[in-house]
């Protein structure tokens, strides 16, 4: 059943992606990109990458859609049709896709427990994390304990960026002569 769900979701992804390239109404494209993010979030959950799915849903489906619509309010919601149909972009995309698929042929099989990535340092963390940190979730332990200072720095950067954006947008600006 899980494989069946995978196929259907991937089929939906393909349909949404094709529709996004064909539609000329940019508002519909922004809405479809939200659906695309939600679909890929479900696929990440199927692949057990719950934290990635979480980020994808919050950033992709939530914030990006709103930012896209904010941009559309400034530009316009209809795409101009260019009369030219060149084959070169299609060829470049096909070539890049073929190169990427060729690159995956060397990778170890999906869910292979003997893959190098599962042999190198992962067993040490899985074995020692509960003893060294006392945190039950290994991902949380790596982020908040082993790499605690790194995470603190990242949070500071994101906080500063958020402050900068708020200042640029002028939120909390007093109205001239107003009460608020």
């Amino acid at each position: 059943m899980a494989e069946f769900v995978d196929f259907i979701l991937l089929g939906f992804l393909a349909v949404v992606a094709l529709a996004m390239t064909r539609l000329r109404n940019l508002f519909a494209v922004a809405m479809l990109s939200g659906i695309y993010s939600l679909l890929s979030a479900v696929l990440f959950v199927v692949l057990d990458a719950v934290d990635v799915a979480f980020t994808e849903a919050a950033v992709g489906a939530g914030i990006t859609t709103v930012l896209m619509i904010g941009t559309l309010a400034l530009t316009g919601t209809e795409e101009k049709i260019s009369g030219r149909h060149t084959m070169i972009p299609l060829l470049i995309v096909l070539f890049t896709g073929a190169a990427l698929i060729y690159g995956t042929l060397d990778m170890p099989a999906f869910e292979d427990p003997q893959a190098p990535v599962h042999q190198h340092v992962a067993p040490k963390y899985l074995r020692d994390t509960p003893i060294e940190t006392g945190v039950p979730n290994v991902v949380t332990a790596v982020l908040a304990s082993y790499r605690g200072y790194d995470t603190l720095g990242e949070t500071t950067v994101i906080f500063t960026a958020g402050l900068g954006v708020i200042i640029l947008l002028g939120l909390g600006q007093r109205k001239p002569g107003g009460t608020a």
Binding site: M31, G34, L38, A41, A61, T65
Partner: peptide, 10 residues
């Protein structure tokens, strides 16, 4: 509404 619906189904 379709996007909202799709989010609920997600």
């Amino acid at each position: 509404l379709a996007v909202n619906m799709f989010g609920t189904k997600t």
